[in-house]
């Protein structure tokens, strides 16, 4: 489990539009890397290119390489379905399957992998995943209830449980706390700390305190103007980025003097 990511000179296009240009970034295994930057700077697009989720938009394509422990995600024989089974994702808004119980939500990924599991085995997976997501004690008595009946923060942790139940190599989080209240947010941040011992985590956030709290490395994305491609401006140790940024744009953004 837990693999490193190496991105080399990646361009992401939607049709003819170059959305993200020339990103080169190494991401170590078992670390938390935060992407920060203004809206529209391409950080979410870049995150989605790490498990080929950006391809749900027609005309999306990339140039360059994304290597997961040396294996190219965009090799010709690579099936995006397999990529996504290896790299889990948590979205901005909690999205448990509304027609499924909590139990079935956690197992949704397992069922796709068409594993036939005995009842005891799937019970184990559900308990382990929900414990890892810090949700077990809250829901253990109502596993057969719909997932949509939980609070927003609980739903998001259910989505994390669903993502990690298949034991992915990497966990991508696209602003996982932006729809949550501060208490739920802090629960999820604690969870990220625990999860990084097992997974490589990449998180997009608009909240700079959050980036400072949870991440080991921080990458700052920016774009030079409307209609221009987003670029990676600077990446480094989180303490260094926040205390002593090398680029003036990074400093301006972190200090709130932006634009």
């Amino acid at each position: 489990m837990a693999k490193s990511i190496d991105v080399a000179d990646l361009n992401i296009y939607y049709g003819d539009f170059l959305a993200v240009e020339g990103v080169t970034i190494p991401i170590a295994a078992r670390s938390v890397t935060a992407f920060i930057g203004p809206s529209g700077c391409g950080k979410s697009t870049f995150l989605r290119s790490l498990n080929r989720m950006h391809e749900v938009i027609r005309g999306a394509r990339v140039e360059g390489k994304v290597l997961i422990d040396g294996q190219d995600l965009y090799a010709d024989d690579m099936d995006p379905v397999n990529v996504r089974r290896m790299i889990g994702m948590v979205f901005q808004r909690p999205n448990p399957f509304p027609t499924m119980s909590i139990y079935d939500n956690v197992l949704a990924g397992q069922k796709l992998n068409s594993k036939r599991m005995k009842k005891a085995e799937s019970d184990d997976v559900v308990e382990r995943s929900l414990r890892s997501a810090g949700l077990w004690t809250e829901v253990k008595d109502r596993l057969d209830r719909p997932g949509s009946g939980l609070s927003g923060g609980q739903q998001q942790r259910l989505c994390i449980a669903r993502a990690i139940s298949v034991e992915p190599e990497i966990l991508l989080m696209d602003e996982p706390c932006s729809a949550l209240d501060p208490i739920s947010t802090s629960v999820i941040e604690d969870l990220i700390h625990e999860l990084k011992t097992q997974y490589t985590i990449v998180i997009v956030t608009h909240n700079m305190q959050q980036a400072a709290r949870v991440s080991d490395e921080t990458a700052f994305f920016n774009l030079s103007g409307v209609g221009k491609p987003g670029r990676l401006i600077e990446v480094g140790r989180t303490e260094a980025i926040f205390s002593n940024p090398q680029e003036p744009a990074t400093e301006a953004y972190i200090q709130g003097r932006f634009g």
Partner: peptide
Amino acid sequence: RLHEEAALALGATKWEMARLAIFPY
């Protein structure tokens, strides 16, 4: 869109996405 992406991000094929996200909805 959210439910479709939830299914796809788990590694669902298009047909599995239909079964997980579209038909129940």
